[in-house]
Each structure stands twice: as C-alpha cells, then as structure tokens.
Simulated assay, not measured.
Amino acid sequence: MVTCDIPRIETERLILRPMRMEDWPAYETMLGSSRSVHMGGPFDTIGAWGMFCNDAAQWCLLRHGALMIDVKSIGVCVGQVGINYGPLFPEHELGWLLYPDAEGKGFAREAAIAMRKWAFDVRGLTTLVSYIDPDNVRSIRLAERLGATLDRDARGYHSGDLVYRHPK
C-alpha cells in the first residue's frame, strides 16, 4: 500500500513543507541554470521535471523525500532540503539546494539540521551521508559546519563524489 505522510517541520526562521505546483517555476529555473552543475545539470525541462517528481514521489514510496524551505518572516520559498534514496543512491542522502538570493544567510544549515534531526529521530534512519561534487566548495563547507566528516571508503552517487557522513 502506498501512503504519503509528508511532515511539516518548523525551525526558528523556517518552515519546511511539502512541495506544491507553484514551486515548479523557481525549481525549473534553478535546475536549468549553471548553478545546478554540481548536481549533474544544467537540466532541460524534462530532466528538471523528472527530478521534481522524484523529490515528491519518494514520500509515498520510501517515507522520505524533499521539503521546500519557506522563510517565515517573508513567506517566500528559498530552496529545498531532503532525504534521497532508492535504487540510484548507495545510502540515504541529506541534500539541499538554495536559490541564488538566499545564499549566505544560514537557511541551508538551519534546514539541513532540522531535516537531519527528523531523519534520525522520527524516520529512524541510522546513517546519513551527503554526496558532494569535489568542486562544490560551498556545500563541502556546509557539510563540515554540520559536523559531517569525509568518508573516503564510502561509495558516492556519482563517480568522484565526496561522501560526507553525518553524526547522529
């Protein structure tokens, strides 16, 4: 039986909420831009749509997936955080993306901490990694600020990925 129990998680400044169709235009723009190069992009509309649908469908199929990041004070979506897994991922992955105007404000860190806590405490995961392109310096720094450590023995999502293992 397929069920979709998608949480809504609040932090001091953010609301992590289920995806909605009105999130699609900004998501497509982000994935179609050069900013998505560390995720295998840029993606055409078909590729971006597939990722958007995958992010939503994981909730029904795997009991985790992506949540959009809204800033409470302004009610604006600034990106996404999620747990990825399935046949394409060696391990459960904590991933994030921010829209360009949202970077440098601590939103990704705050969202990732909340999602990681949910994954361990509510979903019951015992391990969590982040797969990061070696050229993605900002994500490497964020993983390290989150307390994740480089696991050189773990297999990446893409060949050459760095694998950062998160503390429970």
Results as ranks from 00 to 15, higher is better:
E91C: 06
F120G: 02
C53Q: 13
H38K: 02
E110G: 06
L14I: 03
D135V: 09
P167E: 12
R109D: 07
R155I: 14
I69A: 09
W96E: 11
V81P: 01
W49R: 08
N136F: 09
A112H: 07
V122M: 13
W59D: 04
L88F: 14
D23C: 07
F107I: 06
L14T: 00
Y157M: 08
L146C: 12
R109C: 12
R20L: 12
G40I: 09
S33H: 00
L16H: 00
I6H: 02
I9V: 12
P7T: 08
D5V: 14
F107Q: 04
G124W: 03
G65V: 07
D161M: 04
P18E: 03
L62N: 10
E91Q: 13
I69G: 05
D121N: 13
Y157K: 13
W24K: 04
I113N: 10
D153G: 01
G86I: 00
M51H: 10
V76D: 08
L94K: 08
G47V: 03
M21K: 14
Y131G: 03
T29I: 05
S130W: 07
T11M: 01
E91A: 07
W118M: 10
D161R: 00
I83A: 05
H64Q: 13
V81F: 02
L61T: 10
T11G: 06
L31N: 12
D161G: 01
L128Q: 06
W49D: 04
Y85Q: 11
A48G: 11
M30I: 00
E144G: 00
R17L: 06
P25V: 00
A57R: 09
N84I: 01
K117C: 08
E144R: 13
R35F: 09
A154L: 05
F107N: 07
E12Q: 15
M30W: 14
W118R: 05
W49Q: 09
N54T: 13
P18I: 04
W49I: 01
A108S: 08
D5C: 10
Q58K: 14
A57T: 01
V81R: 00
E91S: 11
R13S: 06
F52E: 04
L62H: 12
G95Y: 10
D121P: 00
M51T: 05
P18M: 04
M39T: 02
A119Q: 08
R109L: 12
G65N: 02
I140H: 08
V37P: 04
S73M: 11
E91Y: 04
S34V: 10
E110T: 10
D133C: 05
A154F: 05
H166Y: 09
I83P: 05
I132M: 10
A108E: 00
A48K: 09
T127W: 05
R116Y: 03
E103M: 11
R141W: 01
P87R: 13
